[in-house]
């Protein structure tokens, strides 16, 4: 039998090849894919998040851990979809229109995925219509927006207003973050939540989908 602790270690250490191989072997042995996710990969990404918060890990370590997790998820996700298992939530995430900065958004996307969410990454410079389309067509229940610049952050409000006009605002929770964003600003523009860091964003996403 595969030693599944090694899957945890492979994710924490950012070893994508090992994570992929262990997952492949475990699935071949008949291990339930949800056991791999819930008992090994999510705890591993929790540990990665903890180390990131404690300044033991930094962006490079976090990104290679996320890559390792993805290499395992690539094998697992089709199996979960085939049997009808639902993710914790479905997040449409992107950097707002006019802003091409993506590293913060990518960290949040990775940790959300590590937290059991399905993440639809819309990339950078995302116009409001793209968020609306994703909510409609992919049934996303969270819209997560990032902005690095004070000059682009007003696009968050524009997007929220567009979600309202399109009649889909009530179907989703809107989360915002990025260097110039504050809790107060999030409230002013009518967002449902703000986190100042990527680890907090996952806790926030879990909270809003449970509400």
């Amino acid at each position: 039998m595969t030693d599944l602790k090694k899957l945890y270690e492979a994710v924490v250490n950012g070893d994508a090849k090992a994570a992929h191989a262990i997952t492949q072997q475990a699935l071949a042995e008949g291990v339930d894919p949800l056991v791999l996710v819930n008992q090994h990969m999510i705890p591993a990404m929790d540990e990665v998040g903890r180390r990131f918060e404690a300044s033991e890990y930094f962006v490079p370590e976090l990104l290679i851990a996320a890559r390792a997790m993805k290499s395992a998820l690539d094998l697992i996700r089709p199996l979960l979809v085939a049997r009808g298992d639902k993710p914790v939530g479905r997040v449409a995430i992107g950097t707002v229109k006019g802003d091409l900065h993506d590293i913060g958004k990518n960290l949040v996307a990775s940790l959300l995925e590590g937290g059991g969410f399905e993440v639809i990454d819309l990339g950078v410079n995302v116009p409001p219509e793209k968020f609306i389309e994703t909510v409609r067509e992919k049934q996303a229940n969270i819209v997560a927006m990032s902005a690095l610049l004070t000059t682009t952050m007003p696009a968050m409000k524009t997007t929220i207003d567009a979600l309202k006009q399109a009649g889909v605002r009530n179907q989703v929770k809107v989360l915002v973050g990025g260097a110039p964003i504050t809790e107060k600003y999030a409230e002013e523009i009518g967002a449902d939540g703000y986190s100042e860091n990527a680890v907090g964003a996952v806790a926030l996403a879990k909270k809003v989908v449970a509400a």
Partner: peptide, 14 residues
Amino acid sequence: VEYFDSQPVALVED
């Protein structure tokens, strides 16, 4: 790079 009327010039990372 991408030019904007009212933002800094930015790299196209993709």
